Simulated assay, not measured.
Amino acid sequence: MKKLIPFLLLLVLILSACGNQTTEDEGSSKKEDSSAKMVTYQSENGPVKVPKHPQRVVVLSEFAGNVLNLGVNLVGVDQWAKSNPLFKDELKGVEKVSADNLEKIIELNPDLIIGLSKTKNIDQLKKIAPTVTFTYGKLGYLEKHREIGKLLNKEEKANQWIKDFKKRAQAAGKKIRSKIGEDATVSVIEGSGKQLYVFGDNWGRGTEIMYQEMKLNMPQKVKDMTSDKGYHAISPEVLPKYAGDYIIFSKKPDADPSFQKTDVYKNIPAVKNDHVFEIDARKYLNDPITLEYQLDVIKKAFLDK
């Protein structure tokens, strides 16, 4: 028994030392994990400390589809994302928020906020969580997704999607040009009643896909009038001057269709030739989820008829 007691004491000391070492190792590991949680993102306004792996993101702009595509958790989005039918299932349980209701955003306890440079109350938002903003149109539509990927530590995933999407869109464009002719023109319009809009090559509604990737031709009149702002407002009466051989009509479900019953509209060659294809105007953005929808609609419109 006397020999057993010193052995037991030695065993206790060894176990105690091991336990202390484990605790120290765990503490060291926690410190390392803690220091690795924040990284510096080089935003257009300078460096911003952001979570390396954000878990509770609030989007106050057009980037909800980008974040969803990259598999990062959203806790709050603006009304435009909430009303997009393409996001309906993915945004179940995600709160609708706005920069005008800071209290609601605080309640969501975000660890990252993403917005546009024109988003309201940016200084106050920065006090709630790291906030990164982008200037609309400053980046190309695919470069924008790459930047969101960098911000969310998902750049490789973003690059993979970009490469695959460009390949598919360009292949479809080659088939479309072969079918409709290399010189055929395509215009994109939206609106109803007394006000219509035509769009350039970087204004959603499938414009990036058709003009940038597929290399379809924009009518010269549209090109001239959208070169500054990216879009141009017109009256239904002058639509024939802007209409291409084919028309993509971005149309809201509740839009006033009266101008489509006028002789001016009916006599447009694209209308007479049944070359008008409708796209849901609520799905107008250029995030990956919406782009996939638009690509599908464009392919079916030009190749499945």
Score class of each variant (00 low, 15 high):
residue 120 K to T: 13
residue 93 G to W: 06
residue 73 N to W: 07
residue 130 P to L: 03
residue 74 L to A: 01
residue 100 D to E: 14
residue 164 D to G: 07
residue 75 V to I: 09
residue 39 V to E: 05
residue 163 K to G: 04
residue 131 T to F: 11
residue 55 Q to I: 06
residue 151 L to Y: 04
residue 144 K to M: 15
residue 115 G to F: 08
residue 38 M to P: 00
residue 88 K to L: 05
residue 107 E to H: 14
residue 53 H to G: 13
residue 150 K to F: 08
residue 55 Q to L: 11
residue 53 H to V: 14
residue 52 K to L: 13
residue 115 G to M: 10
residue 117 S to I: 09
residue 118 K to M: 13
residue 176 I to K: 00
residue 97 V to G: 02
residue 102 L to W: 11
residue 139 L to F: 12
residue 112 L to R: 04
residue 94 V to C: 03
residue 175 K to L: 09
residue 116 L to D: 12
residue 84 N to A: 06
residue 99 A to V: 10
residue 66 N to M: 11
residue 35 S to L: 14
residue 156 E to C: 04
residue 128 I to E: 02
residue 90 E to S: 15
residue 107 E to L: 13
residue 78 D to R: 03
residue 50 V to K: 01
residue 44 E to R: 11
residue 141 Y to C: 06
residue 130 P to W: 01
residue 61 S to E: 12
residue 129 A to G: 05
residue 126 K to L: 08
residue 147 E to I: 02
residue 110 P to W: 02
residue 153 N to K: 08
residue 129 A to N: 02
residue 150 K to R: 14
residue 88 K to S: 15
residue 58 V to D: 01
residue 112 L to W: 09
residue 159 N to A: 07
residue 131 T to Y: 09
residue 131 T to W: 05
residue 141 Y to E: 10
residue 147 E to A: 10
residue 159 N to H: 05
residue 141 Y to M: 11
